[in-house]
Amino acid sequence: MAVDEGLKIELGKQGVFVTTLQELYNWGRRSSVWPMNFGLACCAIEMIATTMARYDLARFGAEVFRPSPRQADLMIISGTVTKKMAPQVVRLYNQMGEPRYVIAMGACAISGGPFKQGYNVLKGIDRYIPVDVHIPGCPPRPEALLEAFMTLQKKIDAQHLTGEERPRHLDAEAPGMFPVPEQGEHDLEPPANKNVWTVPVVIR
């Protein structure tokens, strides 16, 4: 239930601030998204550049890069995920506490990018873990990563605490652990997590 905007402003003038629990909760979460200190390839350099003085990720409350997945809210898949690395990425994601979010940064993390033909390259990390924001680019500019942060913040703001649209961490039925793929005879087993990813239908 949202508070009437006019009333809210009027009360604010008198020094009384009114909000809903949901807004306060989401405001707190979106203003302190701590990313995981996790670089994979080229995009990681642009990710570091984003945290530096010129682009200053701290403006979005997200400058605290945590090396431990237990302390992180956001995983930025910054670079090519190879078939050797994919199990580790999924395992790290499993170790993160809810609520957790994923940004797939760059062409490689989205689809394999320029290396898609390669025998050792995973064709998109969204085959194994749910991705919240995709940023195209090879590598995406730091501004693009900032845009992804803003998109993620809008997404967090729009989440309801109850009802069908509630986030995964408030849904007891939602899966907490995602199956970690293993290197099979020819490819990763399973080749994709069916609950997360389905073969896209091409509409012509």
Binding site: A41, T80, T82, F115, Q117, N120, V121
Partner: peptide, 23 residues
């Protein structure tokens, strides 16, 4: 090693000389 093995050399053999430049 090998966590970022992106098949660079194999792709180089499949692409023309110019197409390997961005790789």
């Amino acid at each position: 090693f090998g966590y970022l093995h992106r098949n660079h050399e194999k792709l180089g053999e499949e692409h023309s000389y110019l197409a390997s430049m961005p790789y």
